[in-house]
């Protein structure tokens, strides 16, 4: 009974953390983008103001939409985006044990990969349900983008998990194993090159997953008037924005988990609640760094891709880079096993 109460409290706390951290990251992103364009930029709390304004506005349902699906899609998107955070380590707060004794134990990287597709699927359903040609085109493009980026993402995750399994770790897909054994300390010199290639792949998957420039073809404000979200207003649009914010934390958190899982508390030698707080702040710093390089910098520097360019980039170039990285990691793993090449 008490573990149920702890789980409920943990779920609420992680949800609030996800919302606040996500909106804070979006504020940082907007300020960084503005400074790079020699502008002053909005205040840091601008995303919070935007959400509050959207919540105070009317939610309109178009006449030829399917109201049940149209209204359910934002809720599903938001819920699934927040659910990913339950399975990711936030600093030194690992999902198993505190704070979610009943949820976190059952999740691993594969579940995270599937959960990350749910917000996009909900957006596709909402787009088709809104009965607007712009939204339909946006939903089709979102599906194509999803198909394009899933494969490189899976390559990156599976290569790393395979290398951990070769190193003799049981449950290589478990989040705790990844957090306790940074991949860089497991692999040899060839594997490090492979890991760098996989890091590049993951950094490029992030903007597509979040549908930000240069992969915001499904939303494309200038050609599709907002694409998937064209008919959404008020509370529904606010929920989609919140799910985007939570997904930003989740994607950056996934990159942090795979490639930068170190904590700061062992270095500065504190323990207990203070260590968890320090690690959480350090986690946010790592997430900001990841977001800056894979979202902000890319979106300021580049223009939008056409949808066929997205597919050829992700299926052609990034899959090739990912496969080379995976090949190097397999080579590294076989050498460490004393296999065919030693």
């Amino acid at each position: 009974m008490s573990s149920l109460l702890v789980t409920i409290a943990g779920v609420i706390l992680v949800t609030i953390f996800g919302i606040i951290a996500g909106l804070f990251l979006m504020g940082v992103d907007r300020i960084c983008a503005a400074r790079m364009q020699m502008r002053q930029g909005p205040p840091l709390i601008q995303p919070f103001i935007d959400i509050r304004k959207l919540l105070s506005k009317d939610s309109q349902v178009p006449a030829n939409a399917i109201p049940s699906l149209f209204n359910a899609a934002p809720i599903v998107a938001f819920a699934s985006a927040v659910t990913v955070l339950f399975y990711l380590p936030l600093g030194s707060i690992l999902p198993v044990g505190t704070p979610l004794p009943m949820v976190g134990e059952y999740g691993d990287l594969i579940l995270i990969m599937y959960l990350l597709t749910v917000p996009a699927l909900a957006m596709v359903a909402g787009g088709f349900a809104s009965g607007s040609p712009y939204a339909s085109v946006g939903a089709q493009r979102e599906m194509v983008t999803m198909i394009a980026y899933e494969f490189p993402l899976a390559i990156a995750i599976i290569a790393i998990a395979w290398r951990l399994a070769v190193a003799g770790l049981v449950m290589p897909f478990s989040v705790n194993t990844l957090a306790a054994n940074p991949i860089w300390t497991v692999v040899g010199p060839i594997g490090i090159i492979g890991c760098i290639l996989l890091l590049i792949v993951l950094a490029w998957v992030t903007p597509a997953e979040l549908s930000r420039i240069p992969c915001d073809t499904p939303e494309a404000e200038t050609e599709l008037c907002g694409g998937l979200l064209v008919e959404y207003s008020g509370r529904n649009l606010a929920l989609f924005s919140l799910s985007m914010a939570a997904k930003l934390v989740a994607m950056a958190g996934l990159a942090v988990l795979l490639f930068l899982p170190w904590n700061i508390s062992p270095l500065i030698g504190i323990s207990g609640i203070g260590a968890a707080g320090a690690d959480l702040v350090f986690f946010l710093l790592k997430v900001i760094v990841v977001m800056f390089f894979s979202v902000t910098l890319v979106r300021v520097v580049m223009a939008r891709f056409r949808i066929n360019t997205v597919v050829s980039l992700y299926w052609g170039w990034l899959t090739t880079i990912g496969l080379i990285g995976m090949f190097l990691i397999i080579l590294d793993g076989s050498m460490s096993l004393g296999g065919c090449l030693s």
């Binding site: 909005p42 205040p43 935007d50 304004k53 907002g226 064209v230 207003s233």
Partner: peptide, 21 residues
């Protein structure tokens, strides 16, 4: 444009009337 930077005040051009104030 960046010269006047209305995003300072939260003003943003959106693509759909549903999003607009």
């Amino acid at each position: 444009c960046p010269r006047y930077d209305p995003e300072r005040f939260g003003i943003k051009l959106v693509g759909s009337p549903r999003h607009a104030d």
